[in-house]
Design a protein around this nucleic acid. Structure first.
Length: 566
RNA sequence: CGGGCUGUAGCGCAGCUUGGUAGCGCGCCUCGUUCGGGACGAGGAGGUCCCGGGUUCAAAUCCCGGCAGCCCGACCA
């Protein structure tokens, strides 16, 4: 590509609305332009990178035996009524965009489980057609509350979504593992350091899923990481163990209730008992929640820790709490719940450490002191119910955990029968002649988001530094002063042609610009290899090369061949 | 969805307090001189001052109402 003809305009200053270095460079270097909040145009350079990432995704998924297809972005809302997900449209849980058309309401697909289930369900009639995994690369639409970091969080995004269909859970597991392996190959190939993390505990149901996290300063999530044994988990799923437990005192005081009129918040409780040296760490935070079955449960954790609700559980709001005579806002505690018919689940720590604990007394304006779990209150279940913090002990090896800021670049789910039992036609005839629902998995990778992550991961203060597998061009050829030296212009054109013949993709800066401008643009654009042909080089019959990533440089004969530059 | 801030030339900004019809840097166009790390001189083009209403002889500026964008938080299947 001759740069003189490329639709490209580089900017010397960061645009005002950029919130990350990688995004600022993508704009300055002319890869993308924002059309509106969270909506972007890929200019020619940006599209080249996007295409290169897509090519890697296709290559790896094809190798894994998946088949590419293309579903419409637009789908009738009736399909979403079948799965029940249309009920959640407009909420943060599923910020789908819909459009009114002549045929009714259409959904601009935020994801494609419904469409693919209907499609594949229609085509598959027999177990003989299974397993099958399909994928597509397509634009998705999500009405994000807050687009951020350029291509990282957008309202319209290019995504590769894959879906596997199997005849049984074992088959689903195999398909899932194959997809995960393919994803790891993709990240390796594009040049991103990814960590698959467990995103949700298997404690509730068999929902297995993994997030593929790329550590980054623009991360919107953290995952817990153990540097010793390799344990990784999303903070919503991470657990920790309790270490260094002190032996139980021989003479634990008896529990007693204390009147605490007007004391409601944790801070007020601490202030009230300040004279006894009570801090949040000696207290119990107890909250009311409804479990997956809809029963009210009290969850108790150490006072200074954040409660982590199991998947499918919800907090009981203040209004609903009033309907439970045994529970009082501000003084929910551990004692007497069984009598009130309310289950008590406690975090490991409350059992591992003997306490005694200070907590609400399940009566208005009253708190219990010297509570010992197991003596004064018998938990119905013990588990890990706190959000993991840095320094907590790894659940496997007790090494202190780190929290790593990172971007979710891909997500894989074992869906099981979640969609196939709700959608019509998502079944097949098994070997024994019975009709069975399809066992599904789904796998999404944010292709356009990867550009944002790549730009953030590979740049310096001068510009981008694309890994060669995704770079818009292999080499960036620069001639200096060719406009006033016909021989040099000719040599530059000849060199350009030769490089193309040798199979390189070449960005040829044939513009009539000063050396400084050309060099600065080359650094900004971030093509892996820069070739410079100047007057002196022409006389000596050489062209200079310089690698963007590490600034190593050298010379090669102008006559080529240039195979060593790869 | 709460809280804060900002909308002025392609980009980055000043002007607004104290109303008098718009300016700087970069970029862009022309000519000349330059030419190995963002050159210099001269000339030039380019603006519904986010939109609507109000106050006023007069509004980028003051008032009211919208819209958009950004930041913090909440949220993120």
């Amino acid at each position: 590509m001759r740069m003189s003809q490329l639709l490209l305009r580089t900017l010397r200053e960061d645009p005002a609305d950029t919130d990350s270095q990688g995004y600022a460079l993508l704009v300055r270097a002319g890869y993308v332009r924002r059309l509106s909040s969270g909506v972007y145009t890929f200019l020619p350079l940006g599209l080249k990178v996007l295409h290169r990432v897509e090519a890697i995704v296709r290559r790896e998924l094809d190798r894994a035996g998946m088949q590419e297809m293309l579903m419409p972005a637009l789908s009738p809302i009736e399909l979403w009524d079948q799965s029940g997900r249309s009920a959640r449209f407009g909420t943060d849980a599923l910020p789908a965009l819909t459009v009114e058309g002549r045929g009714g309401t259409y959904v601009l697909g935020p994801t494609h489980e419904e469409v693919v289930t209907a499609t594949v369900g229609q085509e598959v009639e027999s177990y003989r057609q299974l397993p099958v995994t399909v994928y597509q690369i397509q634009s998705k639409f999500r009405d994000e509350a807050r687009p951020r970091y350029g291509l990282v969080r957008t309202k319209e995004l290019v995504m590769c979504d894959a879906y596997s269909f199997d005849r049984n859970p074992e088959g689903m597991q195999v398909s899932y593992e194959r997809a995960v392996a393919a994803y790891l190959e993709i990240f390796q190939a594009v040049g991103l350091n990814v960590t698959p993390v467990v995103a949700q505990s298997g404690a509730i149901g068999g929902d297995v899923n993994h997030e593929f996290m790329v550590p980054s300063v623009i991360g919107e999530d953290h995952f817990a990481s153990c540097g010793s044994c390799g344990y990784h988990a999303n903070t919503e799923a991470a657990e920790r163990q309790i270490v260094g437990v002190s032996p139980a005192p021989s003479d634990l005081p008896e529990r007693r209730s204390v009147a605490t009129p007007g004391v409601a918040t944790m801070e007020e409780v601490v202030a009230h008992f300040a004279a006894e040296g009570i801090s949040l760490k000696e207290m119990v935070k107890a909250i009311a929640a409804t479990n997956a079955e809809g029963d009210v449960v009290v969850i108790a954790v150490r006072g200074d820790r954040e409660v982590r609700l199991p998947h499918g559980w919800d907090l009981v709001d203040d209004e609903a709490l009033k309907a439970h005579p045994g529970l009082h806002k501000g003084s929910i505690g551990l004692v007497g719940l069984n009598e009130a018919g309310i289950s008590l689940v406690v975090d490991h720590e409350l059992v591992a450490r003997t306490g005694p604990w200070l907590c609400g007394a399940n009566a208005p304006d009253s708190h219990d002191e010297f509570v010992v779990v197991g003596r004064d209150a018998i938990p119905d279940a013990v588990g890990s119910f706190v959000v993991v913090e840095a320094g907590d002990a790894c659940p496997i090896c007790a090494n202190p955990l780190e929290l790593v800021r990172s971007v979710e670049a891909a997500h894989t789910f074992q869906l099981g029968l979640q969609y196939s039992t709700k959608m019509t036609g998502a079944s097949f005839l098994d070997e024994d002649g019975t009709e069975q629902p399809l066992w599904m998995g789904c796998y999404g990778i944010g292709v356009s988001r990867l550009l944002g992550v790549l730009a953030e991961a590979h740049h310096d203060d001068k510009g981008l530094m694309w890994p060669k597998e995704v770079a818009p061009f292999d080499v960036h050829l620069v001639t200096l002063g060719a406009n006033r030296n016909p021989a040099l212009e000719e040599a530059g054109d000849a060199l350009y042609s030769q490089l193309l013949r040798e199979g390189f993709s070449v960005l040829y800066d044939d513009r009539d610009g000063s050396p400084g401008v050309k060099f600065a643009d080359a650094d900004l654009l971030g093509v892996p290899i820069r070739l410079v042909l100047g007057g002196k080089g022409l006389e000596r019959g050489i062209v200079e090369w310089r690698r963007r990533r590490d600034d190593t440089e050298g010379e090669v004969a102008l006559s080529g061949p240039f195979t060593d530059l790869r």
